[in-house]
Design a protein around this nucleic acid. Structure first.
Lengths: 145, 145
DNA sequence: CTATATTTGCAACATAATTGCATTAACATG
DNA sequence: CATGTTAATGCAATTATGTTGCAAATATAG
């Protein structure tokens, strides 16, 4: 099996980004979680390993290259998840539903749930659809009920 | 025909809010626009008529009472629109699609477009759905093409 | 008109994001 | 593997955004 870090390094190179510590660290963290990761959380986990500004820039670069995608939760906080294959600098294909749990506040990418096509008024040209469901995730609905 | 300001005053009273200048002004501005209005825009338009803090509080009060609803655009900026009838302090019924124009950045409430029901993985309990479409609005797709 | 409770505006504070720039590190090249 | 070039980082300073406490002002019930 291919080494994870190795995969990340290739991913960076493929996108013309240098293989630096903060970038690899961000990829490690994001890949180790089952839900999207908030900017504040990343900041906290990275601690003094990287400057706050660097984190902003890493995330921005990754998003531009299509390595990660941003999801805003109901509070407007940015959350990031690694894109599935098929995203690129010019096109994001993250049109799956996101689920924002009211209890644990995690954001899940429901890759299996596609957003249904939509009929909009004449004149409007839909480019992307962004659907966020809120409620209780599988974990929390167990615990709460 | 009933006077607009009069209607707003009733709306405030009905919700136990006092009929103050900043509140009426916010309602005037919001009602005079065909799309949701961003917090920064409101701040700018109100200028020195009301303090920034007052605006925050007015918007917060209105949202709590179900007079307006908040929509976050793709940048995470708060935008506000007057609720259609049927919203109250305890329940918002703004589950229509919002359209965020990439060109003019306006946010339209597509009241006529309902969000289709969704099939989510076992365990997830959906409470609310929030669908934002991006692309070109009717105005801009005219001009651009 | 007056008493009372809300609401406002100000000031201070707290948090989040952005920019410019000098230093450092990656890596292509010879 | 030394080194020049370019990209990336970290720091400091700035700007933007949001929050809190409190005194003064104002809406409205009586």
């Amino acid at each position: 099996m291919e080494n994870k870090t190795e995969r990340f390094e290739k991913l960076l190179v493929k996108n013309g980004l240098k293989r630096t510590a903060p970038r690899l660290q961000v990829l490690e963290i994001l890949s180790g979680r089952d839900s999207a990761t908030s900017q504040p959380y990343l900041e906290q986990v990275m601690g003094k390993d990287a400057d706050r500004v660097t984190l902003y820039r890493v995330l921005q670069a990754f998003e531009e290259k299509g390595i990660i995608h941003k999801v805003l939760d109901q509070q407007g906080t940015a959350n990031y998840a690694i894109c599935s294959d098929g995203c690129s600098a010019h096109e994001h294909h993250d049109e799956h539903v996101h689920f924002n749990c009211d209890n644990c506040h995690k954001i899940y990418c429901l890759d299996s749930v596609k957003i249904p096509a939509l009929k909009v008024p004449t004149g409007f040209k839909v480019e992307h659809l962004n659907l966020i469901a809120t409620g209780l995730c599988a974990n929390c609905s167990d615990k709460v009920n």
